[in-house]
Simulated assay, not measured.
Amino acid sequence: MNSVNENVLIKRPFSEVVSDYYQLTKPGITMSVLVSMLVGFILGSGSDINFSILVHALIGTYLIAAGTGAHNQFIERVSDRLMKRTAKRPLPDQRIESRSGMIFSLSLIFSGLFYLILMVNPVAGAVSFVTALIYLGVYTPMKKVSPVNIAIGAIPGALPPVGGWAAATGNIAEPGMWLLFGIMFFWQVPHVLSIAWLCKDDYSSAGLKMLPKNDEVGRKTLFWSMICVLGLFPVTLALWQLNISGMIFLVLGMILAIGFTAYTIKFGMDRTKENAKKMMFASIAYLPLVWVAVFIDRFISF
Rank of each mutant, 00 (worst) to 15 (best):
L38I: 07
M142C: 02
G163R: 01
D270E: 14
F267S: 06
R95G: 02
K143S: 10
V229D: 13
I258Q: 08
T68N: 14
F14R: 10
A206L: 06
L193W: 14
V235T: 14
Y203K: 13
S45I: 07
L232P: 06
I258L: 14
G28A: 11
T261V: 07
F181R: 03
T86R: 05
L232K: 00
S107H: 00
A285R: 03
A126E: 11
D20C: 01
V148W: 13
M226K: 13
R85N: 13
S32A: 15
G268I: 09
D93P: 01
L159E: 09
E16G: 03
P190F: 03
E274H: 15
G176A: 14
I195D: 02
W178F: 15
K277F: 10
R95E: 02
A276S: 14
F185L: 15
C228H: 13
I265N: 04
R85W: 12
S283K: 09
I265K: 09
K11T: 11
K84H: 12
M37S: 13
S100G: 00
F233C: 06
I42G: 09
C228M: 06
A196C: 09
G46K: 06
K200Q: 15
A276T: 12
V127T: 09
V18S: 08
S146C: 01
E16H: 10
R77F: 04
L252T: 05
P141F: 07
I258S: 12
L289A: 12
R77E: 06
L250F: 14
S98N: 08
M142E: 04
S225D: 03
P13Q: 11
R89K: 12
I42K: 01
G46I: 15
A173C: 09
A257Q: 08
I248H: 03
D202V: 02
H56F: 14
C199H: 11
K200M: 13
G101L: 00
A166Q: 12
S45E: 07
L237T: 07
L118E: 12
M279S: 14
R89P: 04
I117H: 08
R298F: 15
P141H: 10
Y203C: 01
R12F: 02
R12N: 08
G112P: 05
I155F: 15
V127S: 15
Y135C: 11
G125A: 08
Q23E: 08
K143D: 04
A124C: 08
A168F: 00
A257H: 02
V55Y: 06
F110S: 02
F281I: 14
G170H: 01
L43D: 04
L193N: 04
V127Q: 13
F233P: 01
N275L: 04
G253C: 10
A276P: 13
F41Y: 15
N50K: 08
I195R: 06
I255S: 06
R298G: 04
K220I: 07
